[in-house]
């Protein structure tokens, strides 16, 4: 292959992701335009999602799915963060040689399971347990939040582990030599040293949880109302899209693109914060 062509093609490929991001933003904005002009920023607080009587127009607002997305993510983060930290600590500071490998592989396999499988399993096996313990009808905010947590734990644990592993052995050994317990070392040496990486992993997992579709679609209940108790069914932005996108037209379709745009911008901001600020890769 021609040297110049090769270089140009590689440059083109490298810039492709940038143009994809710009392209996604432009397309979503273009399709959402009708809804943006109709509802403006009030879209965020309108709590109805109804088509007009003649099938055209209607009132569409993002309040319910936005709250559903935030609440399910919040529950997931509250459960996942301590568990993921625990797993990372186990893998870096507690487990011995022969245990690290199988546990790491198990956690990585957990991360590899497709999200739709989590949804299937959650619906048929986990939802009944939540119903038994907490009441409600099984599917709802809590079930979605817990299964979402199980999904993001391996992801968060893996990045936290990698961050913790960068702590120089000499630092830890010095602390141990001073009589520190393992927890002292974790708290006063490992955590401060790998702080940026740990925060980055939490924020990155948050970004993932916000946009997760399939697991939540099975479990959140898909009801267009705000949940008043954690066991109530509600809906999230990705699930609203997954369920109603293919039948939507005109203003409703545009409103869906408005939601997709919001989701894209928020998760982009969250993930970019994690990547550019906390998880800067040393080249």
């Amino acid at each position: 292959m021609n040297a110049k062509l090769f270089r140009q093609f590689s440059f083109f490929s490298a810039t492709l992701t940038f143009f994809l991001l710009v392209g996604i933003f432009a397309v979503l904005f273009d399709y959402a335009n009708e809804s943006i002009r109709e509802f403006g920023f009030k879209f965020l607080t309108i709590d109805t999602w109804e088509t007009g009587e003649d099938g055209y127009g209607g009132v569409f607002g993002g309040w319910v799915p936005i709250i559903g997305t935030l609440m399910s993510t919040l529950i997931a983060m509250a459960i996942a963060t301590p568990l993921a930290m625990g797993i990372a600590i186990f893998l870096t500071e507690i487990a011995h040689g022969y245990l690290i490998k199988p546990v790491s592989i198990a956690i990585e396999l957990l991360a590899a399971i497709p999200s739709i499988i989590y949804g299937m399993w959650g619906l048929f096996y986990f939802a009944p347990i939540v119903q038994e313990l907490f009441g409600g009808n099984g599917v709802g905010l809590l079930t979605a939040g817990i299964v979402l947590a199980i999904m993001i734990i391996p992801f968060m644990a893996a990045i936290t582990r990698d961050a913790m592993n960068t702590t120089p052995g000499a630092l830890k050994e010095s602390a141990y030599a001073m009589g520190a317990t393992t927890f002292d070392v974790i708290k006063d040496v490992v955590m401060p040293y790998s702080k940026a990486g740990i925060i980055g992993s939490i924020i990155l997992a948050l970004g993932r949880a916000l946009g997760e579709t399939m697991a939540v679609a099975f479990l959140i209940g898909s009801v267009m109302s705000v949940a008043h108790r954690v066991t109530d069914p509600t809906i999230s932005i990705p699930v609203l899209l997954a369920n109603n996108f293919s039948e939507a037209q005109d203003l409703q379709l545009s409103s869906m693109y408005y939601l997709a745009l919001l989701l894209f911008v928020v998760s982009f901001a969250v993930i970019a914060l994690a990547k550019f600020y906390f998880l800067r890769r040393s080249v």
Binding site: L21, I24, G211, F264, S267
Partner: peptide
């Protein structure tokens, strides 16, 4: 991009 919501 790797973490962009797949539904989007």
């Amino acid at each position: 991009m790797m973490s962009a919501p797949s539904i989007v």
